[in-house]
Amino acid sequence: MYNLSLLEKLCTSRGISGDESSIRDIIIDEIKDFATEYYTDNLGNLIVFKKGRYKPEHKLMISAHMDEVGFMVTDITDDGLLKFDEVGGIVRRVLPATSVLVNGSVNGVILNKPIHLCTGDEKSSIPKLSEMYIDIGADSREEALKHVLPGDSVSFEAFYKDNGETIITKAIDDRAGCFMMIQLIQSELEYDMYFTFVVQEEVGLNGARVAAYSVNPDFAIVLESTTAADVPGISGQKQVCNVGQGAVIGYMDRRTIYDKSLINEALNISENENINLQFKRMIAGGNDAGVINTARGGVRTLAISLPCRYLHAQLSLIAKTDLDSAYELTQRLCNRICGGEV
């Protein structure tokens, strides 16, 4: 039912917060023949309206963010190495010896002092970001400046593997959400709906704040990825949710208390239509719902997430069945909301 090569294209393309244009271009290319109207706003959000067969009872906005976590070049040393800082929250322990791409074209790797030359605690310590460097092969600042400037974007190297059951890739957060929205726009809709592909979620939910103002919806659904910590050594509640057990919703996270009637409706749909759904078992994380639900006079909001291992790092993992569950749940919940059943 899906064109998974589009998901691969979205995940392997680059678009750190504040530099999402290449992702937006891919999306525009995909939706332009299906959307009723679309425009890019002053912050770079792509706002899409598509007419359905009926006029909805409630104005619904579906939102996913286009940006991914990454880095920005802050300085270049006399030896031609790049200093950098994170854009969005990144698990620092994954960084030593990781491959990166500067401006989408210059290959680089994060240096790691050889273990043979480390002494004492150094052998098991992860350096501070301020002590890490990206090596692009340049020998001097002058040489590096021919290829890179301070302020340039740095993204993790592209990687995408689908083994039939799961997908391991860069930037599933939140290209999977963008992917599901594109699928919806390309399908026949029952009701008129708004879709916002927003910028800068990872650095403070900036895009969603203004998009929600512009669209002025009654209801919103945020499509996201959320931490699944179902890995060895972690049990019970600390797992948060489990890969392969369906779409994820929560009562509350670090940003939002979700709309009770939307939660109940999601549960009804799951039960009646046999769609796998699980609850987040820990109050952790946060997403664009936090600014959408308080936009203007308030928006009734639910986040539907994919359980995703290894978020905020180079590679994440999702199950394909969870993608199906999240998509089917979203589709049905949209119709219930627009049809006035919530």
Binding site: P96, I168, M282
Partner: peptide
């Protein structure tokens, strides 16, 4: 060098080669 291991792509050389990723604790548990 285990400092470089977490979240790295690896190949498991089983009956066939399988791609995998070295497990990494999420931020809420670090």
């Amino acid at each position: 060098d285990v400092r470089t291991a977490l979240d790295s792509p690896v190949v498991v050389h089983g009956k066939e080669d399988y791609f995998g990723v070295i497990c990494c604790m999420p931020p809420h548990l670090s």
